[in-house]
Amino acid sequence: MSVSATLLALALLLTGRDGGARLARMRVAGRRIDRPLERAQADPLAAASTFDVFAACLSSGMAVSAAASAAAASAPAGLARILTRAADMLALGADAATAWSDPGPPLDDHARALMRLARRSAESGTALAQGVAELAAESRSDAADVVRGAAERAAVLIAAPLGVCYLPAFLCLGIVPVVVGLAGDVLQSGLW
C-alpha cells in the first residue's frame, strides 16, 4: 500500500464517510430534514435570515403556525426549537400567549424579542409580519456591530506588534544617527 493511500484511509477514518460534516436529523412538519450540526461559532446572520423567512411567509398570507413551521426549517437550533414549539401548539389550537411562552433558559435576546412580539401581536391585533421584518433588520445591525468591534480589536492587535518592531528600528536608524551626528558637530566646534 502506498503512502498516499494510507493517508487517505487515515483521513477517511478520522472524518467519517460524510467528509467530516456531521448532520443533525430532525423532523419539521412531518418531513425529515438533514442539517449540518451547529459549529462552535454560529452564523451571526442566521437569526436575521430566519426572521426574514418568517416575515415573508406571514406577508404572503400564511397562517402563523405554517409560517413558523416553514421558518424553523432554516433556523438556528434555539430559534428552531421556539418556532417548532409555537407552530405545533398553534396548530393544535393553543392561544398565542401559551404558544409563544418562554420554553427555557438557553435563549438569546432576539428569540425573546420574537416571543414578546408574537404575544403582543396576538393581544393587540397588530401585524406580526412588519414587526418580524424590523426584528430581522435589528438582528442584522447587531451582527454588524459585533463584526465591526471584532475588526477594530484586530486592528489594535495587529498594530501593537508593528509598533514594537518598527519604533525601535526607527529610533535606531533614524533618530540616533541624527543626534549622534549633531552631538559630534557640537563637540568639534569647541563649546567646551
Results as ranks from 00 to 15, higher is better:
Ile158Asp: 00
Gly20Met: 06
Ala129Thr: 11
Gly190Ser: 08
Asp185Phe: 01
Leu14Phe: 13
Val64Pro: 07
Ser101Lys: 03
Ser189Met: 12
Met89Val: 01
Ala24Thr: 12
Val176Trp: 04
Ala47Asn: 08
Ala67His: 08
Leu12Ile: 09
Asp145Glu: 06
Ala122Lys: 04
Ser189Thr: 15
Leu173Trp: 10
Ser74Pro: 00
Leu182Trp: 11
Leu162Glu: 04
Glu38Thr: 15
Val28Pro: 05
Thr84Trp: 00
Ala24Val: 10
Ser189Cys: 00
Gly181Phe: 05
Asp52His: 10
Gly163Trp: 03
Ala99Gly: 05
Leu13Ser: 14
Ala150Thr: 15
Arg25Glu: 10
Gly184Pro: 00
Ala143His: 05
Ser101Tyr: 02
Ala63Asn: 08
Ser74Ala: 13
Tyr166Ser: 13
Gly184Thr: 15
Gly16Gln: 05
Ser74Leu: 03
Pro76Cys: 03
Gly163Cys: 14
Ala80Trp: 01
Gly104Leu: 04
Met26Trp: 02
Leu23Arg: 12
Ala87Val: 11
Leu45Pro: 04
Asp43Ile: 03
Ala136Met: 08
Arg85Asp: 06
Ala118Glu: 01
Leu45Asp: 15
Ala94Val: 07
Met1Gln: 09
Ala154Phe: 09
Glu38Ala: 15
Thr50Ser: 07
Ser69Thr: 06
Leu167Lys: 04
Ala143Tyr: 03
Leu167Cys: 13
Ala24Ile: 05
Pro177Gly: 06
Leu191Trp: 13
Leu173Thr: 07
Asp142Val: 10
Ala94His: 09
Gly174Tyr: 03
Ala137Glu: 13
Glu152Cys: 02
Ala77His: 12
Gln41Thr: 15
Phe170Lys: 00
Gly104Gln: 09
Ala29Ile: 06
Pro76Ser: 05
Val28Met: 02
Ala68Asn: 05
Glu123Asn: 08
Ala77Arg: 14
Thr50Cys: 07
Val186Lys: 00
Ala94Lys: 02
Ala91Cys: 02
Ala154Trp: 10
Arg27His: 11
Ser59Trp: 00
Gly20Ile: 11
Ser2Asn: 14
Leu37His: 14
Gln130Trp: 00
Asp145Ala: 10
Asp109Ser: 12
Cys165Trp: 10
Ser60Arg: 11
Glu123Leu: 08
Ala47Gln: 08
Ala42Ser: 14
Arg39Met: 09
Arg32Lys: 00
Ala111Pro: 09
Ala63Gly: 14
Ala42Met: 03
Arg27Glu: 13
Ala133Cys: 04
Val164Met: 07
Ala97His: 10
Pro36Phe: 01
Leu14Asn: 03
Leu167Arg: 04
